[in-house]
Design a protein around this nucleic acid. Structure first.
Lengths: 209, 209
DNA sequence: CAAAAAATACCTAATAATGGGTAGATAAAA
DNA sequence: TTTTATCTACCCATTATTAGGTATTTTTTG
């Protein structure tokens, strides 16, 4: 079996060199090129065939999703693995939609990378552990409408938005700060967000604030 | 000199009793009534004269600012002191605009209260220490337009709004989390807000997010 | 009235944010 | 070519938030 002709596209030279080093011992593949931009890769593809491309999302001239499309338009048999630090669900989904065979975070283990490469060339789609988790937990935003808030929760939400801490809110509402913490926790859970910054953002978008 | 006829309006019985106890030893005033609602006070005022009213902002039937107006409409010579936990500059200003002679937080010392009562009946306007501080530090929002953000700051602001921590942002932008912390700090300072919750809120209002 | 929902309050422990700096390296403008 | 702005990164110390609970008391509602 011939070795997989593999290219790496990343705007960070260090990442390219790192990957080259990591993959140099792999028996079944050969790194035939490292590119800093989408255009550089595309012009290489004009004259050479590739079996596998490891692709970053952030590139100087175009984003990785766009590049995915263009690669697939030129060479449908080339497998693409995204290697990125972006954890947004929407980006991951878009990448797959546009022809990527997998998505890994840059801190993935070499074993995960090896496994995903194997799956990708077999035509399977493959994600690293963390990515799988992100995908299987869709934002409640994407699922339902805005959550129902109780009177107290609305009250506390707007005080949080005013920059007040649990302690201050507790004083104003004659509540224990621990109670305010509980309401804060419930708000974060109900909205399915990670912290108050996102909470405020989503609440504004859903016109609750 | 006759004692000042004084009333207390607060929806919390405990506060009323506490104030009564605190002020019972004052030689120059006499608590003639405690009321849980604005209406209760107003109907008392129909038949009795008052020299001083200690007023809360949060009341069951109307807010303290509204009540201020109504009191002054009926009895211009009555001095009003606001005793509240609300620290919003706008509320303080509105209270004064509507006839209050002073504003204290509920955790003010008895000395501050005594002093402000004396000033109020002399016709002076008087604030407790913390209130003075709030007033003399107007929100930058009230002063100027939206702050100028650098490219990096805008970038980090939107990542914060997406609920990401400094660590995650650092990973995505290939920066030290400490650097992200610095940008975060600068954002909070530029907007003149207290924390990210308020930061996001204000940024949305000023259409930066 | 019984059951469900909401509001209250606590626990522990880990992680994150905030406030007060300082400071060097680049990059842009005067 | 200086000055100015931006970006970078760190120090220290304190406070706040978050995540994982549990549990009692009020209110509301079927």
């Amino acid at each position: 079996m011939p070795k997989l002709r593999t290219a790496i596209v990343d705007d960070h030279p260090i990442v390219i060199e790192g990957l080259k080093a990591l993959l140099s011992n792999e028996a079944n593949l050969k790194i035939v090129g490292g590119f800093y931009s989408g255009e550089a890769l595309l012009s290489y593809l004009d004259t050479h065939a590739l079996d596998l491309i490891l692709l970053d999302i952030t590139l100087p001239d175009m984003n990785g999703i766009e590049l995915c499309q263009k690669i697939k338009a030129v060479s449908l048999t080339t497998s693409i693995l995204i290697l990125s630090n972006h954890t947004e669900r929407s980006i991951i989904m878009q990448a797959i939609q546009n022809g990527a065979s997998g998505y890994l975070l840059k801190n993935s283990s070499i074993d995960e990378l090896r496994y995903c490469i194997a799956e990708a060339v077999k035509g399977q789609i493959c994600y690293s552990k963390e990515i799988t988790e992100i995908i299987s937990r869709p934002t409640r935003n994407e699922l339902q409408g805005p959550p129902r808030l109780t009177r107290r929760e609305k009250e506390i939400l707007s005080l949080i938005a005013a920059g007040k801490t649990s302690q201050v809110i507790g004083q104003e509402l004659f509540l224990s700060p621990l109670t305010v913490d509980t309401h804060r926790k419930n708000l974060i859970q109900k909205f399915g967000v990670k912290n108050v910054a996102e909470l405020i953002m989503v609440a504004v978008q859903q016109q609750i604030l």
